[in-house]
C-alpha cells in the first residue's frame, strides 16, 4: 500500500482558507445573481440569448426567475411605457433586499428613439438604477460585461451591515 506524505504547509495543501465574512457573503451574492425575467421589447431577445446555451449566463450564477420574490436583479430590457410604469415599480417593490437594477439599452436608459408622449424617458424616473448599459440593442457580450461590472460593485459593498434600502427620492 502506497504511503503519501502531504506537506500541509507547502503547495497550498492546507485544507483551510482564511477570509472575512464580508468576502464570503459577497462572493455568494455576486456569484448567484438571480435575475427577474423582464423583457419589455427587442432588448429582451438579447437578454434571452444571454441566458441560452451559446452565451450561458448560468456560469455567472445568473439564473432567470419568473417571480420577483426569488430575484435580486432586475434587468429592464426594453421600452418602458407610461402605462407600464406603475407595474415596474410594484415589481421592484416586491423584490427582496438586497436588490439591483440594470437598465439595458437606450430605451430603458433615456427613452431612446421613442421621444413621444407614451414612453417613460428613462426608467430612473421610476426605480433607482445601479448600472446603465448603452446600446440599441446591446449584444449578449455587453450584457455579460454589465453583469460582471455589477459583480464588482456587489463585492465592493460592505455585506455585514444591513444594506441601506435604495430610494429614488
Amino acid at each position: 500500500m502506497a504511503q503519501h506524505q502531504v506537506n500541509y504547509l507547502k503547495d497550498g495543501g492546507l485544507p483551510v482558507a482564511l477570509t472575512t465574512i464580508d468576502k464570503v457573503v459577497n462572493w455568494g451574492r455576486s456569484n448567484s445573481i438571480w435575475a427577474l425575467t423582464y423583457g419589455l421589447a427587442c432588448c429582451g431577445i438579447e437578454m434571452m440569448a444571454s441566458g441560452a446555451s451559446r452565451y450561458d449566463f448560468d456560469r455567472f450564477g445568473t439564473i432567470f426567475r419568473a417571480s420577483p420574490r426569488q430575484a435580486e436583479l432586475m434587468i429592464v430590457a426594453g421600452t418602458l411605457t407610461k402605462k407600464h410604469a406603475e407595474f415596474i415599480r410594484r415589481l421592484y417593490d416586491q423584490m427582496t433586499e438586497p436588490k439591483w437594477v440594470i437598465s439595458m439599452g437606450s430605451c430603458a436608459n433615456t427613452g431612446g428613439m421613442f421621444n413621444t408622449y407614451a414612453t417613460v424617458q428613462g426608467v430612473d424616473r421610476v426605480i433607482p438604477v445601479d448600472l446603465y448599459l448603452p446600446g440599441c440593442a446591446p449584444r449578449p457580450e455587453t450584457l455579460q460585461y454589465a453583469v460582471m461590472m455589477l459583480q464588482q460593485k456587489i463585492r465592493k459593498e460592505p455585506a455585514s451591515r444591513a444594506q441601506k434600502p435604495k430610494r429614488l427620492m
Binding site: 407610461k82 406603475e86 408622449y117 424616473r125
Partner: peptide, 13 residues
Amino acid sequence: YPLQGDEFAAWYE
C-alpha cells in the same frame, strides 16, 4: 395633441 405629450402626459408616471 403634442407629440411629446401635454403636461398631464409628462408627469403621468
